[in-house]
Design a protein around this nucleic acid. Structure first.
Lengths: 134, 134
DNA sequence: TGAAAGTTAACGAAAAGTGTTTAAGCCCAA
DNA sequence: TTGGGCTTAAACACTTTTCGTTAACTTTCA
């Protein structure tokens, strides 16, 4: 009813980890196996990932689809594409070239190998020029 | 395995809602009762709230507790308190007076009645001067 | 290489979440 | 007052998640 996604157990493990304890040490403290600590930590991370993805969905709800960056595109060509498409529909993008690349790298790290995009990426834009990658 | 917190059903309803449809209209489209649409929408909102809260927890994991703003404090006194406490521990707050108030209002809207804080609010700070309200 | 740290797989029991229905209720404008 | 839009509660079948165990596997590093 009140709390977030993480269970008490999961928060407990994350806190101890933040303090630098090993899984074995935590296992001793909370009286279980290190394998269990591992799975609890893993599911905590999974929950955090899902929380992020949920909010991303929320953003795309406010946004319209702008274009798709095809697999293999050079990372440094992305801003030009985005700017061109945004201009077509008369929206000014909130970011400059550098920040756009940074935003892409942050939100889609797994899609950026070296200088290339390694997956099709859908670009969303709001009326205010906010950009999301989905 | 892959998706966020929201189920397909929940996303479906949110999308229709964003388009301005009534619960009854959506109920007709997806062939169920309006009461059901209501509960699906409600649980979607609940999931979104939980997603936000989960990420907030993540922030407080990196942060240390700075101080507590007592119930009844004037909203416009909050920044001064935060700046003073941050100075005590030699951390420069990333925000100015106005942005601090805005951040507080955004993250704790339910605690801000008119010009007063209507609940004790714990303030967290990171080494980088990032501020969170918990 | 050896030891400690971490990960994974398979399984079970308990708990929590979801979609539904039905029936009742609230609020507000015509 | 009626009706439309919305909310709520209880109950249900069903699915998913969680925490736990055991045992084997990989990684890291002195």
């Amino acid at each position: 009813m009140k709390d977030g996604l993480l269970t008490d157990r999961q928060m407990e493990v994350l806190r101890y980890r933040k303090q630098g304890l090993t899984q074995q040490q935590i296992a001793d403290i909370i009286s279980t196996s290190k394998a269990n600590v591992c799975t609890i930590e893993k599911s905590a991370m999974e929950n955090i990932r899902r929380a992020k993805e949920t909010l991303e969905f929320l953003y795309t709800l406010d946004a319209t689809q702008l274009c798709t960056i095809p697999n293999g595109t050079d990372l440094f060509e992305v801003p030009a594409i985005v700017f061109r498409e945004a201009e077509k529909i008369n929206i000014k993008v909130k970011y400059d070239t550098i920040s756009l690349i940074n935003r892409l790298r942050e939100s889609k790290a797994q899609c950026c190998k070296a200088r290339q995009v390694c997956e099709d990426i859908v670009v969303y834009i709001t009326d205010q020029g906010e950009i999301y990658f989905g």
